[in-house]
Design a protein around this nucleic acid. Structure first.
Lengths: 113, 113
DNA sequence: CCTCTTCTTAACCGGATTTTCTCCAGATCG
DNA sequence: CGATCTGGAGAAAATCCGGTTAAGAAGAGG
């Protein structure tokens, strides 16, 4: 019986129209490079690894910055906006990061209409 | 492709046709997201944790808002109504929150007819 | 030292959420 | 039956949260 080896972090992952190369910190949408910075990729990958799950804002903050998030801290959503912006450029008509008001964000690729 | 299992055992509860994810503040009925707000989820979860038990209104009030409930306070049933409404959308034909007149509410999933 | 890029912080604003209010039908009880 | 009480329903008012933009640090490279 043939058993496929588990995906190692070094290989590229495919989610919807996205190719993710963790070792290169690169994301390609239909072959077009998103051009994420390091921090942007970290946020993107953190959410993408937990596909279809809502990740709470304070948890995102703790994982990305460490410590507790102040009530009115905008760090998370400013970064989310940049990731969204770059994804929009290379994958117009797609939506990936969904806001759950008062809770956090969920990564689920969806095509408009 | 699935990168990681989104949910590990123990982070998700199943009651009737509902999947409850406490860490995400999410409830799914047959895979459809209820879309509760934070407060709505809190009320839902409070009742669901006490399946088949009647929870008295003053106790619900104390747990959700703290302190004693004024005689004519509508906070509890306004929230109950919103939770019922969102459950109705994703699970038509089901009834979950039952009113016990003069006492409180009981969470018991039931299918119509 | 200068420029460019990236990351963080701050402020404003619109909209979503939560709370509060009012009206009303149905239940309870004498 | 009549009076009173409870919860359903809708919506206004108040509060909270996230999107957006821009400016201020921090760092790299020339």
């Amino acid at each position: 019986m043939l058993v496929e080896p588990p995906i190692s972090a070094g290989e590229s992952l495919q989610i919807a129209n996205l190719e993710i190369r963790p070792t290169e910190l690169q994301v390609l949408a239909d072959g077009r490079r998103a051009g994420f910075t390091v921090r942007e990729f970290e946020l993107f990958f953190l959410l993408a690894k937990r596909l279809d799950s809502v990740v709470q804002r304070p948890e995102i903050y703790a994982l990305m910055w460490g410590g507790d998030m102040q009530r009115r801290d905008r760090s998370v959503d400013v970064l989310v906006r940049k990731v969204r912006g770059k994804l929009e450029v290379v994958a117009p008509g797609w939506r990936y990061i969904h806001t759950h008001f008062g809770i956090g964000y969920r990564f689920t690729p969806e095509q408009d209409q």
